[in-house]
Amino acid sequence: MDNLKEKLKVQVIERLNLKDLKPGDIGDDQPLFVEGIGLDSIDALELIVLLQQEYNIKLSNAEDGPRVFHSIRTMADYITANSGAVKVST
C-alpha cells in the first residue's frame, strides 16, 4: 500500500506536470483539489485517464470522483479495492 501511494505521487506529479512538487511534498491525506494541492477540473479528467491507463480501472460512477480523488490515500484505496475487478470498456 505504501509503495502504491509513493508510485501514485510520482505519477500524479508527472501526469499533471507539477514541476514545483516532489513526492515528499504531497501528504497521504492532503486534499488534492482546491485548498490542498490546488488541482482543478481539468486535472480531475487527467486523473481519471491515469487510472484507466496505468491501473486498468474505469471510474464507473462520476459521482464517486470527489471521494476517490480526495487524496493520494483515497486513490490508493480505490485502486486496491478495484484492481483487476473492473476492466476498461473498449
Partner: peptide
C-alpha cells in the same frame, strides 16, 4: 498510441 481511447484532455484543450 492509445487507439483513440482514454485521451488526455489537456493536450486536446
Amino acid at each position: 498510441e492509445f487507439d483513440e481511447q482514454m485521451l488526455s484532455p489537456t493536450a486536446f484543450i
